[in-house]
Amino acid sequence: MARLTEENVRLAQEIISRYPKARSATIPLLHLAQEQDGYVTDDAMAHIAELVGASPAEVYGTASFYEMFKFHPVGRYVINICGTMSCALMGAEDLMHHAEEKLGVRMGGTTDDGLITLERAECQAACTEAPCLQTNYRYSFRVTPESFDALVDDLRAGRLADEIPPHGVVARVRQHIPADRGAGVHAPEDVKSAPAWLDGKAAL
């Protein structure tokens, strides 16, 4: 259980500053919390509520709407196997059975060593590469029982540590708007007139 670290509060404030209303940063901040702790803790949600000016219940209401946020510890790697139509047509169900056997856990379960959590997922937007799965939101395409085993073995042996960050980290690149380059937020209460370039004159 942890509030956001000082460094993450700084990041959080940078993120908040990009939006006309702080509430908009709720989901990015929840990701930041999950990145920090591997899942979203109650303390982090209460902290985020303070930062964005919402109540903790509202932050929890938002967080629990979205699939990616976990409220209990999960494995270092979360493997999501897609089961929607295109993948189902290409054998996703067999793959799921195989995965459960290989890992010795049911869907939603975490291996005893705490390394891998297995989940059934819905469409991951890689339908032509069915069946597909994501490990911490990194794709494996046209997965076969053999390639699944190889993936698990690689994860266990730490061979994918560079490629796949621990659960909670989604994008490893953050947007940065340089202070001297930003056009600034346009909040409804501050901006009342048309943007300068719309006055009909050529802009260049």
Partner: peptide
């Protein structure tokens, strides 16, 4: 200088803020 303040030296300024979801169709 393609995004942000005075894009390409013009009077056109706009920020593009990257936002991301969390899993909800």
């Amino acid at each position: 200088g393609y995004v942000g303040r005075n894009i390409l030296g013009s009077s056109f300024s706009v920020d593009i803020v990257l936002h991301w979801g969390a899993g909800a169709y």
